[in-house]
Design a protein around this nucleic acid. Sequence first.
DNA 1: ACTTATATGGAAGGCGCATTCCAGATGTCA
DNA 2: TGACATCTGGAATGCGCCTTCCATATAAGT
Lengths: 185, 185
Amino acid sequence: MSMPGRRADAVRNRQLALEAATALLAEPDAALTVEAIAKKAGLGVGTVVRAFGGKDALLDTAVAHLLEPVVRRGRDLLQQYGSEQALRAFLTELIAFQAAHHPISDQLRGLTTPATTALRADLVQVVAEMLTGARQDGVIRTDIDLATTTALISHLAFAIARAQPGNPQLADAFITVVMDGLRPS
Amino acid sequence: MSMPGRRADAVRNRQLALEAATALLAEPDAALTVEAIAKKAGLGVGTVVRAFGGKDALLDTAVAHLLEPVVRRGRDLLQQYGSEQALRAFLTELIAFQAAHHPISDQLRGLTTPATTALRADLVQVVAEMLTGARQDGVIRTDIDLATTTALISHLAFAIARAQPGNPQLADAFITVVMDGLRPS
DNA sequence: ACTTATATGGAAGGCGCATTCCAGATGTCA
DNA sequence: TGACATCTGGAATGCGCCTTCCATATAAGT
């Protein structure tokens, strides 16, 4: 991991900056400016920016760190439970995650940085796999095509998370309604 | 309409600024800066700002102008059709409207200007009335309380509109899924 | 310990935007 | 038409932010 000619303090500071950014991403109403990140990390702004080559790259890395376990968790669920149950559980966790990292969605809309884009695609992929399995099990309607259903799920999960961050009652209701609506008639 | 001491050109320019802002609100990817509005209206920036007392006030008025007919339309639907049918039709129109004025949602999140806030409340009120009627008709489940259901509908409509602006197939699928999910079991 | 390549803090620079200001223009009223 | 209150354009100002820069500090190698 440590590159040649790369000083130890630089590596450590990069890590500190990353942790500070990640922490701020979980704070609602946080400013999320380079200066705020630097202060939280106990570094100068120059150091923070230099470690990643720009604010966007830093945020990209931070978001990737946050998103990666979510995607992995989705894969685990899929392997461990049946498709329908996995989907339901994953939705619950996705919503909770987004609610806990509320700033992510706002801040990064339209950020087409590489890692974030890739992970977003992975997320959609996982949801699509769950839906495919559930369709084969006959518990999800097939009169709406897979891509549309996947898009629906993804966007609705996003919406509900931002609607009332941290209101589990609303999240439950959302999941119930959508899952019921997705069953075959 | 013309106030005393208010010069005719000032009134006309105010109208021009309002129209320019409204037009920009319907243009996806429009800059929506005061300068852009001024240029589109053929006015100087000072004139535009002065006419409303600030950018936010201008946008507030523009959004109110746009939203008012939507709310009225909802009331008409409610009076003309049964609750369920009105709800379905209104959702379709709401989504189309939001898709056509895509910048509104992004630009005005958190804008707590008076007119916009009031109209948003009216919108929710109309949806709540439709749902109340539909519940009484026995076509909407009552195991989820009214407020939650209303919030659900509002946020979901918002989500789908932003998901794929102008993709009627997705919008239809969304409405079908949610309406099916809202039926009593 | 000394040298040198590398890193640091934070001031200065640059940019995009809303707002303010004012010299000049233009509607209004007698 | 003349006098004057009102309005106008757009340059100047202010503000928040990201990025760049460089004099100083510090790790690494010998």
